Amino acid sequence: MTESQDLPGRDWLAAELADALDEEYELELEDAVVSEEIARIYKQNHPDALDRATYMHALIRLQSELIKLQDWVVHHKEKVVVIFEGRDSAGKGGVIKRISQRLNPRVVRTVALPAPSDREKSQWYFQRYVPHLPAGGEIVLFDRSWYNRAGVERVMGFAEDAQVEQFFHDVPEFERMLVRSGIRVVKYWFSITDEEQQMRFLMRIHDPMKQWKLSPMDLQSRVRWEIYTKAKEEMMARTNIPEAPWYIVEGNDKKRARLNCIDHLLGLFPYEPVPHEEITLPERIFNPDYERAVLPPELYVPRKY
């Protein structure tokens, strides 16, 4: 029995809630080691940011609804794809973490593919994404997707004009095929301003815990801001189909963007409570002759904390 289970029922539940809040707080410690000057400027540019208590209350309520959505997807063998696109540092990863944070990883999984290998480059463009599509009772969150071709590949010169044009010709029919097969396709674009992206890049540069997020490709995307904007606008115009429309999330305020996106996602599904078998904890089999073995102390992790 753990220490928390020794507590009276109400105290134990309070401890579990506090642990959940601590988990979210760890995710929120994004600016802890950023220089004071940059932190001051950032706060200056976000004067109406949600206070932590309001944000956490709304987030936990939405996450409880996500659990209901997950149960509905499993019960009805639904197949769901959610695509998250946007500029670097727009907040895609943050909302994906909050969506999946309290869900079953066997039901809800995130796909973030690396750059294609030489072999994959020779394949049908959509081929490397197809194995990651959901089976019945699964939700797949794409942290970037096949829309790389219309965005970063096009802007950075990794795709020829003919390949981009072929993509625009193929992708609407590809997504219609997915929908006809029973897959629900949801597409989000996280939109931030030029100034906000610059601020977030500066914060990453000055934060040792987030510098890994900055690649040479990310830095080049700053140089090509206007080219990226034009590419995004054409992508939206040519791939916004009734079967799989785009939804734009205003992302300058991270917390509001997360809440708005999750709330909108929930509203797209006619989920409802599903029947559950009542769970009861079985009695432990007790053997009076059993003695727990004493293991060598070197097997234990040192208790430094």
Rank of each mutant, 00 (worst) to 15 (best):
M209L: 04
L295C: 09
K304V: 01
E283S: 15
A162T: 15
K304D: 03
E24G: 05
M236E: 13
R98F: 12
K121A: 03
K213V: 06
W212V: 05
K79T: 04
L141F: 02
N104G: 07
E16R: 13
I248T: 00
I96S: 04
K210T: 09
I60M: 03
I38W: 01
R144H: 02
A162P: 04
D19H: 14
F269I: 04
L66R: 05
A14W: 13
E272M: 00
F168W: 14
P245M: 10
V82Y: 06
L299E: 11
F84G: 03
I248N: 01
E85P: 09
V223G: 12
F142W: 07
Q5W: 02
V111P: 00
W146Q: 08
R238I: 05
E138Y: 11
W146A: 01
K121Y: 00
R109N: 15
R258F: 05
R52I: 06
L21Q: 06
R144A: 00
L268I: 00
H132Y: 15
E243N: 08
D207S: 15
L13W: 05
A293L: 11
V164K: 14
R106E: 14
A15P: 09
D218A: 04
Q70G: 08
N287K: 12
T110G: 00
W72F: 03
M177K: 04
I60A: 01
A257R: 02
L17I: 02
Y55T: 02
K230E: 07
I41R: 15
E85T: 12
A15S: 15
I248W: 00
L178H: 07
E283G: 14
K68S: 07
V33R: 12
E272R: 12
W12E: 13
H57C: 08
D143C: 07
M217Y: 00
Y305I: 03
D71S: 15
R52K: 10
A231H: 06
E23F: 01
H57T: 09
I41G: 09
G93A: 02
I227R: 02
I192N: 10
D143S: 03
L50T: 12
Y147S: 05
S215V: 05
E278T: 14
A150F: 10
